[in-house]
């Protein structure tokens, strides 16, 4: 049996995730890995929205904020287990995405960007200003997930960093699997069709509004899960998670890695999570170097890192 490129990609991803710890000199690298996976999950969602469907969002950190704060608040106010709170967060995010997606996805280009930007800012303002509930800008603590203790009970003893590395990796692999399946399905083809031309897609019978909305809702679920994971991993959360800068960071990761490609998204997220850590020695030049790398990628590798590199490799072989 020949492996399809989709399965091959997922297998390579799984192998990297499983083998990378062999090269980790300390627990700190598990944390960096987990952060890259959390970002990668949100970025995979954006690949569906931006890369497949061609719709820009500058407000997806808003959904991450909803996911994160649901995990912080639902266990206290509703008595929910944090894992259920995570689920509730995705339901709320999906609901809100569905409600606002209808009207704002009628907008195109810059207008859509600004509308989603407004949504993100709105969420972060609510989180920062509702001090009695959210704790305001100083943030608030998030309950322990408790899964690590349960694993220890059945004999799997992981350090905190190792546990989160493995746990977030599962979500990322699951997310990548769903996204690559979507890419090759009828719905994925419809999304890519409306990316190229909404009018043409509509003419051949694609329900443009419905498919755009589905992509928006699905990407909101990804962002919400990523926010929940971040909150539970850090056991502490501030409104920064929903901030404008986080939204921009996510979009940058998407475009840098390659907006239309799932492995590209993960590579972009990993690169932009690792680079600031690698550049601490050159602290004063950190932002300059980051900017330079982005400019170079955008000029010389317009489709993003992974699509350009894999094309170059295939061309040679």
């Amino acid at each position: 049996m020949r492996l399809s490129s989709k399965h091959l990609t997922l297998l390579i991803l799984l192998a990297i995730v499983a083998l990378a710890p062999l090269a980790f000199p300390s627990n700190f690298y598990y944390r960096i890995g987990a952060l890259a996976f959390v970002n990668g999950l949100a970025v995979t969602g954006l690949v569906i929205l931006i890369g497949f469907a061609g719709q820009v969002s500058l407000g997806h950190a808003g959904f991450a904020g909803i996911g994160a704060y649901t995990c912080a608040l639902a266990p206290i106010y509703l008595g929910l287990h944090p894992a259920l709170a995570m689920l509730l967060g995705t339901v709320i995010s999906a609901g809100i995405a569905w409600l606002i997606g209808g009207p704002i996805l009628r907008l195109k280009g810059y207008y859509l960007g600004v509308a989603t930007l407004g949504f993100g800012i709105l969420v972060s303002m609510v989180l920062a200003n509702e001090v009695p509930i959210t704790g305001g800008a100083d943030g608030r603590e998030v309950p322990e997930l408790g899964l690590r203790a349960a694993l220890k009970f059945i004999g799997i003893d992981l350090s905190n960093a190792q546990f989160w590395y493995a746990f977030t990796a599962l979500f990322l692999l699951g997310g990548a699997w769903v996204a690559s399946n979507l890419h090759d399905s009828a719905a994925g083809r419809a999304l890519r069709a409306l990316h190229d031309s909404e009018i043409a897609a509509g003419t051949v019978g694609v329900d443009v509004a419905r498919y755009k909305l589905s992509a928006f809702v699905l990407s909101a679920v990804y962002a919400s899960l990523s926010g929940s994971l971040l909150a539970l991993m850090n056991k502490f959360i501030t409104p920064d998670v929903a901030g404008f800068l986080h939204s921009v960071e996510l979009v940058t990761m998407t475009v840098l890695g390659g907006a239309g490609s799932v492995p590209g998204a993960i590579a972009g997220a990993t690169l932009l999570t690792l680079l600031p850590q690698a550049l601490t020695a050159l602290q004063a030049y950190e932002h300059m170097i980051l900017g330079l790398i982005m400019m170079l990628v955008m000029i010389f590798m317009r489709d993003g890192l992974v699509p350009t590199l894999s094309r170059a490799l295939r061309g040679r072989g």
């Binding site: 300390s26 627990n27 700190f28 944390r31 952060l35 600031p276």
Partner: peptide, 14 residues
């Protein structure tokens, strides 16, 4: 705060 946590981990572990 997220970066602060990462750097604290790095200071201690690495």
């Amino acid at each position: 705060p997220n970066k602060a946590r990462t750097f604290a981990t790095r200071l201690i572990e690495d």
